[in-house]
């Protein structure tokens, strides 16, 4: 059975695609779209002599990524304009940060919501300013609201009523209920201003966050894209200082695992000490690659295992039962 190893190989070594026939290309392009890596693939394959149909497809993906980048950067600028009077650092996370800083991880990247990190004591002021600046709650639902505020690391998502774009305002990079507790104050203190009123995390923190986002914060959906982020950040910055930062945030195991997963699929250079596989690594790789040439999510049992695991990671068990039960009941209503 084909899996996304084909896509990982093309990203790692673009020249490997020269051996593909029509069917191989179709599978590769379809899984790239499904994994939100179409623009990234287009960037990696730029300049290679490719079949005309593939060139057309990649040109579309590239144009889509340019548009995504423009929209994301503009959304960050609009948030900055509304929040600037607060005089607090506004730290962009993930896709928007990579694009704004011109990083390799941002090349061709699909960018969704705007993720902002602010210090916890500014959260209420930020919320007020956004609500006054045209943003509104996505779901006016008391339970979700309580859930987010009490247990998550972010405000309930807000959407701008004119531009229809979502913003997630975080005060740390993992939910307080998650077992590792990153040092949020240190994240804010080390952030690097870009000179346009917006900041990004320090390089080491960025790697730690990308690893946490991949492994500690979700069910590995979109895992290949997140792993590609880890690869790009480690390739661009090297591993210097990452260990210490990871220790400081209690995320060294996640960083080492993300590093060796990236090493295995993309050949990322990582310290020798990170590379030893444990019992979970094979399963994680199976999960990250669970996509076939028709764009279908495959390996349902592996995916389900990670879905439950992701909730265990994020919440104390009692809370998990309560959360799943309320979601379940509402799902039936």
């Amino acid at each position: 059975m084909t899996d996304a190893r084909l896509l990982a190989a093309a990203l790692r070594n673009p020249a490997s695609t020269t051996a593909l026939d029509g069917e191989g290309w179709t599978a590769l392009l379809t899984m790239a779209r499904a994994e939100q890596l179409a623009g990234t693939l287009a960037w990696r394959l730029a300049g290679l002599p490719l079949p005309a149909e593939v060139q057309d497809w990649l040109a579309d993906a590239q144009a889509g990524a340019v548009q995504a980048r423009r929209t994301a950067l503009w959304e960050a600028e609009m948030a900055r304009r509304v929040l600037a009077p607060l005089g607090t650092p506004l730290i962009m996370l993930k896709g928007t940060a990579y694009a704004a800083a011109g990083l390799m991880a941002g090349q061709g990247r699909q960018i969704g919501d705007l993720d902002l990190l602010v210090s916890r004591d500014q959260l209420a002021a930020v919320e007020r300013a956004l609500l006054g600046g045209g943003w509104e709650w996505v779901k006016p639902d008391a339970y979700d609201d309580h859930y987010y505020r009490t247990w998550m690391h972010e405000l309930p998502p807000l959407i701008h009523r004119e531009r229809d774009r979502m913003i997630d305002v975080h005060h740390t990079i993992l939910p307080p209920t998650a077992r590792p507790s990153p040092d949020a104050a240190a994240l804010v203190a080390s952030a690097e201003p870009l000179g346009n009123g917006l900041s990004i995390l320090s390089h080491a923190d960025m790697v730690v966050h990308a690893a946490a986002h991949l492994l500690a914060d979700g069910d590995l959906a979109g895992g290949l894209r997140n792993l590609w982020d880890v690869h790009c950040l480690l390739t661009e910055f090297g591993g210097e200082g990452v260990d210490e930062r990871a220790v400081c945030h209690g995320l060294l195991p996640q960083v080492m695992r993300a590093g060796r997963q990236a090493h295995a699929l993309f050949g990322t250079e990582v310290p020798e000490s990170w590379r030893k596989w444990d019992s979970l690594d094979r399963l994680i790789q199976r999960r990250v690659l669970a996509r076939d040439g028709w764009g279908r999510a495959v390996r349902p049992a592996t995916r389900a295992a990670f879905y439950v695991r992701s909730h265990w990671l994020r919440m104390p068990p009692g809370l998990l039962a309560r959360h799943l039960w309320i979601k379940w009941r509402r799902g039936r209503a």
Binding site: W25, T26, L29, P51, E53, V54, W57, W294, G295, R296
Partner: peptide, 12 residues
Amino acid sequence: GDSVPDFTVRLE
């Protein structure tokens, strides 16, 4: 259709 189509549709 072409050997590398623009779009994939699935009925599942």
